[in-house]
Design a protein around this nucleic acid. Structure first.
Length: 257
DNA sequence: ATGTCGCTCAAAGAGCGA
C-alpha cells in the first residue's frame, strides 16, 4: 500500500496536478494539507471520479486538511482532544480517518511565524497536545500513521544554511524537542528520515528552488510495527518543477502489508 | 529587489499568510 502526504497550497488551484500525481504515482492514500477552502468547497466529486473517497476539514481560505483514499476511508474525525485555539478559533489543521486498517492523520502544524510571536507559543502547545493524543492512539494498540507539514526541521541538514535560520522558527530547540517527543513519548517512528535524502519545500520567493535552497519539513510518523513494513520511500522533487507547482512536494511511502 | 503565490473583499488592487 502506498501512502503519501502533500501540502498542495490550495486544492482548487492544484486539482489537476494532484489528480495527475495520484495516477502517475499509483498512490492509495493521500493526506493533503493547505487545501485553503471550506469543507464544502473541497472537490470531492473529482476524486470520486478517480476512485477515491475523500474527507475534508476547512473553515475559510486559511489552512485546511483532507484525506483521499481508494482503499477505504472510515471514521473521519476533525481535530483532536485539547487542541489549542488561536485567537479563539479552532483551526482546521488535523483530520483523521481509518484507511485499510491504519489510522491516518493529515496534519498542518502551525508555522510559528517568529520566536517572539504568539503563533510560536501556539505552535508548541499544538504539538504538545497532538503528541498527547498520539500517545493515546498508540497505547490503544492502533496502527497509526501521522503525516503532513510539521513546519519543523529536526536536523541542521534539513535546511540549506543554518546561518540563515539563526533566531528563526523551524530549527529552535523547543520545536525540535516537541518533534522528538513523537518518537520518545508517543512511541512512533519517523519513517522517511533514514531512507531518503532531500528537501520537501522551497519558498516561492528568491529563487529558492533553482538554487536548491530548500527545507525538509514534511514528515511521516508511524507505529513501529508499521515502520518495519516500509519497503520504499521517495520525495517527488520533480513535482516542484514547472508552472503551477506547490511550494511543497509529495513524500511517498510504500508499506508491504 | 521579500526575484512569489493564492486567497478575499467587493469588484482593482491592497492586505494577509506562508
Amino acid at each position: 500500500m502506498r501512502i503519501a502526504t502533500w501540502n498542495v497550497n490550495s486544492i482548487r488551484a492544484r486539482l489537476e496536478r494532484v489528480l495527475a500525481f495520484l495516477e502517475r504515482s499509483s498512490t492509495d492514500v493521500l493526506a493533503i494539507q493547505e487545501t485553503k477552502c471550506k469543507a464544502e468547497q473541497f472537490p470531492a466529486e473529482a476524486f470520486a471520479e478517480a476512485g477515491y473517497k475523500a474527507c475534508a476539514s476547512g473553515l475559510n481560505q486559511w489552512n485546511g486538511v483532507a484525506i483521499v483514499s481508494r482503499v477505504g476511508l472510515e471514521k473521519p474525525a476533525e481535530s483532536f482532544p485539547n487542541c489549542p485555539t488561536f485567537k479563539d478559533q479552532l483551526e482546521p489543521r488535523a483530520l483523521f480517518a481509518t484507511c485499510n486498517g491504519i489510522r491516518v492523520g493529515s496534519l498542518y502544524v502551525p508555522h510559528g511565524r517568529a520566536l517572539d510571536d504568539p503563533h510560536y507559543t501556539y505552535k508548541l502547545a499544538w504539538l504538545r497536545a497532538l503528541k498527547e493524543y498520539a500517545s493515546t492512539l498508540t497505547a490503544a494498540g492502533e496502527q497509526v500513521a501521522l503525516m503532513g507539514d510539521w513546519n519543523v526541521a529536526p536536523r541542521d541538514s534539513d535546511v540549506w544554511d543554518m546561518a540563515v535560520f539563526e533566531n528563526s522558527t523551524h530549527v529552535s530547540a523547543p520545536e525540535r524537542e516537541a518533534f522528538a517527543a513523537f518518537e520518545g513519548e508517543a512511541h512512533l517512528v519517523e519513517v522517511s528520515r533514514e531512507r531518503v535524502e532531500g528537501y520537501t519545500y522551497w519558498d516561492y520567493r528568491r529563487l529558492r528552488f533553482p538554487k536548491n535552497e530548500g527545507m525538509r519539513i514534511d514528515w511521516m510518523f508511524a507505529t513501529p510495527a508499521l515502520d518495519k513494513t516500509v519497503s520504499h520511500v521517495e520525495i517527488d522533487r520533480d513535482e516542484r518543477k514547472g508552472k503551477g507547482a506547490s511550494d511543497h512536494v509529495p513524500l511517498i511511502v510504500d508499506f508491504d502489508l
